[in-house]
Design a protein around this nucleic acid. Structure first.
Lengths: 159, 159
DNA sequence: CGTGACTCCATTGACGCCCAAATAAACCCA
DNA sequence: TGGGTTTATTTGGGCGTCAATGGAGTCACG
């Protein structure tokens, strides 16, 4: 599989390290990126993380704007300067920097949530709330769409 | 990695030296440029810095104007004449000249901010302000993009 | 001879790297 | 199906290395 799927909650150790869930590591390995590309999500208290696939998405986003345009400069400045490439140790762990942790309100545990080509890192409590809210909205949307739009996933219950 | 990513704040020592962040040095080494190409950013109180990739970008920019045109002469005069090639000592440090420091308002510390193919050098306080402002604008822009994207794709719902 | 700049060396603190224990999951066989 | 075993993953800790910083020595130039 080459998609980040499901979610996992893990604890930080005394040195601030967290294991990236093994299934996610497998996806990253296939992606071929050395390290973990990570930055604060723009519109929510979470971190976006991934590998080359995520990097490519960012580039595509930036290239929507004309070269040398103010918008483009701001996009590349914001995204590149707030991004970090976290090193992954031999056991598959990373250390989140202070800015990253404070953006997401992370203290001693994190929730990893798959998003297909990338995944997000949340403070576990906030993630539960976000998930509940998002589920509500999706239900409403689905009702709007009327017909069966498939996929109300079977794996929501996991922790 | 061959891009300047993330940002770092470092202090100048009594002799006015600053270490270039190790990750940035690694990118420069791969780029193959001897020294650090540096000039005052045109439209903000910061310095643009980099290696061959930056030099190439400048050339491309100048070539957009017709040869011998007034604009071209002015561009090349401005960019090239205000540029400096800073020497990097054995420990990876540089000394910023007075004109450079005064353009950016730098006193005893600097912030290095990755921009992909180049990086910028800021007075730390100003950088924080600039980053906050740029992030705001990017949020707004992305919101616009998001609505547009949602109309044509299956994964618009997630952002 | 004085001034400044560059090179070289030393300190300190953080970080990456490696090895080991504990926990949890998957598996196999009776 | 249940028990026991094996494997994989997560967690903990110690040690070595590297990066950031400060200072001293050396050379070039005015």
């Amino acid at each position: 599989m080459d998609r980040f799927v499901s979610h996992y909650t893990l604890r930080l150790d005394a040195k601030g390290r967290v294991s990236i869930p093994a299934p996610f590591r497998a996806v990253l390995a296939r992606d071929g990126f050395d390290g973990l590309y990570c930055y604060p999500a723009l519109d929510r208290p979470a971190l976006d993380a991934g590998g080359n696939a995520l990097l490519k998405e960012i580039e595509t986003l930036i290239e929507r704007f004309a070269p040398y345009s103010e918008e483009r400069e701001q996009f590349s400045a914001t995204l590149y300067s707030t991004s970090e490439i976290l090193k992954v140790d031999g056991e598959g762990r990373v250390v989140l920097s202070e800015p990253l942790k404070s953006h997401a309100g992370i203290a001693d545990a994190v929730a990893f949530a798959g998003h297909g080509h990338k995944f997000q890192i949340w403070e576990p409590g906030r993630f539960r709330a976000e998930l509940a809210e998002a589920t509500e909205k999706v239900r409403a949307l689905k009702k709007q769409l009327g017909t069966r739009v498939a996929a109300d996933g079977p794996h929501g219950a996991r922790e």
